[in-house]
Amino acid sequence: MVGIVGYGAYIPRYRIKVEEIARVWNKDPEAIKKGLLVYEKAVAGLDEDTATIAVEAAKNALKRAEIDSKDIGAVYVGSESHPYAVKPTATIVAEAIDATPNLTAADLEFACKAGTAGIQICLGLVKSGMVKYGLAIGADTAQGAPGDALEFTAASGGAAYIIGNKDVIAHINDTFSYTTDTPDFWRREGKPYPRHGGRFTGEPAYFKHVINAAKGLMEKVGTKPEDYDYCVFHQPNGKFYIRVAKILGFKEEQYKYGLLTPYIGNTYSGAVPLGLSNILDKCEGGEKILAVSYGSGAGSDAFDIIVDEKIKKVKDRAKKTKEYIEEKEYIDYAIYAKFRKKIKM
């Protein structure tokens, strides 16, 4: 069985509260918190970007896997905020973790599901025998235009997964994807901030794809919502996440540990990988997990996962997701604007 051999998270320590952003733009913070179910978000510092986040997450994954980084034959970094328009983030990560140069590496982009697309690619490469281990990372320093609704949620963070077939701590039984051309969110070349088509965002985009991917996978593997101990979905905000979980028939005990957006914001490509890492931190072995990502444009990847008892030996080898969430330093809007380079010269 092919699956997760090691996993690791990273979330910057800086936070900005919804109230602070609302103060600057003269908006009602209580209405925003109620409407989005988001209270604060993680902000990358001046010396942080998608590459540094990906490296830290990868190092944590290696600590748990305890494998030789030279055995990693593939590195994929999924993000919509790569630091270079032309130069891969994946090569930076590979060099930083001292991987062999005899590997395949690439950056992936599919809005917020590029990280899970990397996991699927690594699954295929390991199953085919082309590589011994594959490293898939979902990381972002998400963009939101000043004053735009996205600014209240667009956050920074990411998680990394090492995929292999030896000493697997979580078996990925199967995966299923659902994809259409639905223009709900986009950013044109050279533009600093994305735009969103409001009427496409909910029903024809997020809900249609997440629901169809989840149902498609459950039909494929013969499972029902009650067969899962935990579930995690993409979370552009807390409201969408809880609504889709309930539509699919999941209860709070199943979905609450994967829901991180209220406390760190929407980390885009890092959202489902981070939610899954928080769930894995709590597992003891034997748990069954449903994970469903979503990327605007639009598509969803769903995974059926069974956790092995080996996870008890590895999960304490690296800093846990909850620790990153709890270690925080609040900043005001001026520092936030400086960190995120919102002031254009």
Rank of each mutant, 00 (worst) to 15 (best):
P12Q: 00
E19G: 09
E20Q: 04
R23K: 14
K27D: 13
D28C: 02
I32D: 05
G45E: 04
A51E: 04
T52M: 08
L62W: 00
L62K: 01
K63N: 13
R64Q: 09
S69F: 09
S69R: 12
V77L: 05
E80C: 01
H82F: 03
P83F: 08
A94E: 10
I97L: 01
A99E: 05
P101I: 10
D107A: 03
K113M: 14
A114T: 05
G115T: 13
A117I: 12
V126H: 10
M130Y: 07
V131Q: 04
Q143A: 13
A155K: 03
N165H: 13
N173L: 15
F185K: 04
R187Q: 07
G190Q: 10
K191Q: 15
P194R: 05
G198C: 04
F207S: 07
F207I: 04
I211D: 06
I211Q: 07
G216F: 00
G222L: 01
Y230Q: 14
Y230T: 14
Q235P: 09
K239G: 08
K239P: 06
R243N: 13
F250K: 04
G258M: 13
I264Q: 00
G265R: 01
T267W: 05
G270T: 01
A271K: 03
A271Y: 06
K282I: 14
G285D: 05
E287T: 12
A291V: 11
S296N: 08
S300E: 08
I305H: 11
K310C: 00
D316N: 15
A318K: 09
K322S: 12
E327L: 07
